[in-house]
Amino acid sequence: MLIKFALMINLAKDIHSLTEFKRNTTEFLQQIKKTKHPLVLTVNGKAELVVQDAESYQELLEAAELVETLKGIKLGLEQMQRGEGKKAEDFFNELFNKIDNPQ
């Protein structure tokens, strides 16, 4: 899985009111597809929504999944360095015993 995601918000071009977005939806969608930058939409001057293209959103989900995976690996390595956990052989022996002898 190759992740090429870069979330970039241009404060001058990517923050707009929801009303402006409604009036110019087609133009904004073309901008999103061209730049791959999400748009921040405001209501009464406050950020309320983020709109982005589906491909960039999928890349964001994959990046988040990768981060969670790396955090899990880091935690496992830290536990291993502290002498916590089990050897893989012991774990699998216990697992297969549970499968072969359900209670």
Rank of each mutant, 00 (worst) to 15 (best):
Lys87Asn: 11
Leu41Gly: 01
Gly83Val: 03
Lys87Trp: 12
Leu29Trp: 05
Phe91Arg: 13
Glu59Tyr: 06
Ala6His: 10
Ile9Gln: 06
Asp14Pro: 03
Gln30Phe: 10
Asn97Ile: 02
Leu7Trp: 04
Gln31Gly: 02
Val43Met: 12
Glu65Tyr: 13
Phe21His: 03
Thr35Arg: 07
Phe92Lys: 12
Lys22Pro: 01
Lys34Asn: 12
Ala54Gln: 11
Glu78Phe: 05
Leu60Arg: 11
Gln103Arg: 13
Ile9Tyr: 01
Ala12Met: 05
Glu55Leu: 11
Thr19Ser: 07
Leu70Thr: 01
Glu27Ile: 06
Ile15Lys: 02
Ser56Ile: 09
Asn101Arg: 10
Leu66Arg: 13
Leu2Val: 14
Ala47Phe: 06
Gly83His: 06
Lys86Phe: 14
Lys4Cys: 05
Arg82Asp: 11
Leu49Thr: 06
Lys34Ile: 00
Ala54Trp: 09
Gly72Asp: 04
Leu75Gln: 11
Glu59Ser: 07
Phe96Trp: 12
Lys71Asp: 14
Thr69Leu: 11
Gly72Thr: 01
Met80Glu: 10
Glu84Thr: 02
His37Ala: 05
Glu59Asn: 06
Thr42Ala: 04
Thr19Cys: 02
Arg82Pro: 00
Glu55Trp: 08
Thr69Val: 05
Ala64Ile: 08
Ala63Pro: 00
Asn101Val: 09
Ile99Thr: 08
Tyr57Pro: 00
Glu62Phe: 05
Leu70Trp: 04
Gly76Pro: 04
Gln103His: 10
Gln79His: 08
Ala88Trp: 00
Thr26Phe: 14
Ile3Gly: 07
Ala64Arg: 13
Phe96His: 05
Val67His: 11
Ala54Gly: 02
Gln31Glu: 13
Thr35Lys: 05
Gln79Glu: 14
Leu70His: 01
Gln79Asn: 13
Lys22Val: 08
Ala12His: 01
